[in-house]
């Protein structure tokens, strides 16, 4: 098992997905199967190979420094599950 239950718990926390205790074992098995299978990449010598950074060779394009938007408050908040007075609202965050 390359991904034990504690690891599942840890990455689920990082990914902010609630996982029940009962789900841990099957997830651990699934993820391990997949990750054990990708281990075969270790067979390939990649010491002097650069990682791919762009799929198609081209130069990055930039935008001009021009304001292109009117007030989009309505558009931006209209799909919000909860909002008030143009703000998105969430359970109180304590810093």
């Amino acid at each position: 098992m390359s991904v034990d239950e504690n690891t599942v718990r840890r990455i689920a926390k990082l990914a902010r997905i609630a996982v029940t205790e009962e789900e841990l074992a099957p997830l651990s098995k699934d993820l391990s199967t997949i990750l054990d299978w990708v281990e075969q990449l270790g067979e390939v010598d990649t010491d002097h190979v650069p990682p791919m950074t762009s799929v198609v060779e081209m130069e990055i394009k930039m935008r001009k420094d021009i304001v292109r938007h009117d007030n989009l408050q309505k558009q931006v908040t209209q799909n919000a599950p909860q909002s008030e007075d143009g703000f998105f609202t969430v359970p109180k965050v304590i810093e």
Partner: peptide, 18 residues
């Protein structure tokens, strides 16, 4: 990375692009 304005002190969520 967007065309929304940067001015300080605008009404909430009024300077937000998609």
């Amino acid at each position: 990375f967007s065309g929304a304005p940067t001015e300080f002190g605008a009404e909430q969520n009024s300077q937000v692009s998609l």
